[in-house]
C-alpha cells in the first residue's frame, strides 16, 4: 500500500472515531442528566433509563476502544487522549457490573457518568487525537500490564468513592425513613455501604501490582526502581491512604464517618496520581518522567 493511501485510510478512520467519541460523550452527558433528575426527584424511571443508556454507551465505548486499538496497532492508552477515554470506559463498565444487584440505587451513577463525561470532554477538547509511535521507553512488556492494572484499580476506586459519597448523602434520609425513593432502606443500607469497602479491598492488590510493576519497569528502563518522581510518589500516597482506610475499617472508633472520609480522600489522591500530577508538575516546574507530553 502506498503511504498516501495509508494516510487517507488513517484520516478516514480518525474521522469516524471522533464522531463516535463525541456521540459517546453526549450519551454520558444525557445519562448524567437523567441520573441527576432521579437524584433530585427520586423518580425511579429516570434512573432506570439513565442506567440503560449508560449500559448501551459502554457497548459503544468498547467499540471505540477496539477501533482505536486497530488504528494505533498497539494498546490504546499511550497518550492522555487515549487514557482519558479508557478511564471513562473502565469506570462506567465497573459501575454497571458492580451494582448489577442494586438496580434501584442510582445515585452513584450520577458521579460515575459525570466523571466519564468530564474525562471524555477533557480528552476531546484539550488533547490531540493523533496516533503517535510508541517511544523506546514505553516499548516494554510491562507497559500493558502496568497500565491495565493501574486503570483497573482506578475504576474500582471511582465506583467505591461514588458509593461512599451516595451513602453519606442518603444515610440521613434513610434514618428518617425517606430513603425508599433512592432505593435504600434501614434494612439494606449497611450492606450497600459494605460494597465500598469490598471494592477497595478488590482494587488494592491491583494498585499494589501497578506500583510494583511500575517499579520493575523503571528498574529496567531507567536503572532505578524508585526515583521519587511526582507520579510515583502520588501513587504511593494513594496506596498509603487506602492502607489507612483498610486499617481504619478494623478500628471500631474509625470505621464509620472517618473511614468514609478517608475513602473519598483516597479517590482524590488517585485523581491526583492520574491527572493532578501533570498540573502540579507544570504549575511548580517540577520535572517528571511520567508527565503526558501528548
Amino acid at each position: 500500500m502506498l503511504s498516501d493511501a495509508v494516510l487517507s485510510r488513517d484520516t478516514f478512520l480518525l474521522g469516524i472515531e471522533l464522531r463516535l467519541f463525541w456521540s459517546i460523550a453526549f450519551i454520558y452527558g444525557f445519562s448524567a442528566l437523567l441520573f441527576l433528575i432521579h437524584s433530585v426527584s427520586g423518580e425511579g424511571s429516570a434512573g432506570r433509563v439513565a442506567r440503560s443508556l449508560l449500559s448501551f454507551n459502554i457497548v459503544l465505548h468498547t467499540g471505540l476502544i477496539v477501533l482505536r486499538t486497530f488504528e494505533a496497532g498497539r494498546a490504546p492508552f499511550e497518550t492522555l487522549y487515549e487514557s482519558l477515554s479508557w478511564f471513562a470506559w473502565s469506570a462506567s463498565a465497573t459501575y454497571i457490573i458492580v451494582t448489577r444487584k442494586w438496580k434501584d440505587v442510582y445515585l452513584p451513577g450520577l458521579f460515575v457518568s459525570s466523571l466519564s463525561l468530564g474525562a471524555c470532554l477533557y480528552s476531546l477538547l484539550s488533547r490531540s487525537p493523533g496516533i503517535t509511535i510508541l517511544p523506546p521507553a514505553l516499548q516494554s512488556y510491562w507497559f500493558e500490564w502496568h497500565v491495565v492494572f493501574a486503570f483497573f484499580s482506578y475504576a474500582v476506586f471511582v465506583v467505591s468513592a461514588s458509593i461512599e459519597a451516595s451513602f453519606l448523602i442518603l444515610n440521613p434520609f434513610v434514618k428518617r425513613g425517606l430513603g425508599r425513593a433512592w432505593g435504600l432502606g434501614a434494612e439494606n443500607i449497611e450492606r450497600y455501604h459494605g460494597l465500598a469497602k469490598k471494592l477497595v479491598m478488590f482494587g488494592y492488590p491491583f494498585l499494589t501490582f501497578a506500583i510494583l510493576s511500575g517499579a520493575a519497569w523503571a528498574n529496567e528502563a531507567w536503572g532505578r526502581y524508585w526515583s521519587w518522581d511526582p507520579k510515583e510518589t502520588w501513587s504511593l500516597v494513594t496506596w498509603t491512604v487506602f492502607t489507612v482506610y483498610l486499617h481504619s475499617k478494623a478500628i471500631p472508633k474509625y470505621q464509620g464517618l472517618p473511614a468514609s472520609v478517608i475513602n473519598i480522600i483516597g479517590f482524590v489522591c488517585m485523581m491526583m496520581t492520574f491527572l493532578g500530577v501533570n498540573w502540579l508538575a507544570k504549575l511548580l516546574g517540577i520535572p517528571s518522567l511520567h508527565v503526558y507530553t501528548v
Binding site: 511526582p230 510518589t233 502520588w234 504511593l236 500516597v237 498509603t240 491512604v241 489507612v244 489522591c269
Partner: peptide, 21 residues
C-alpha cells in the same frame, strides 16, 4: 499507631512532590 503513622507518611510523601527534589 499504624493509622497515625501512615497518615503522616502520606502527608510527607505529598510534601516531597511540592518541592523540587
Amino acid at each position: 499507631t499504624s493509622v497515625y503513622v501512615l497518615a503522616v507518611m502520606a502527608l510527607f510523601f505529598m510534601t516531597g512532590t511540592i518541592f523540587p527534589q
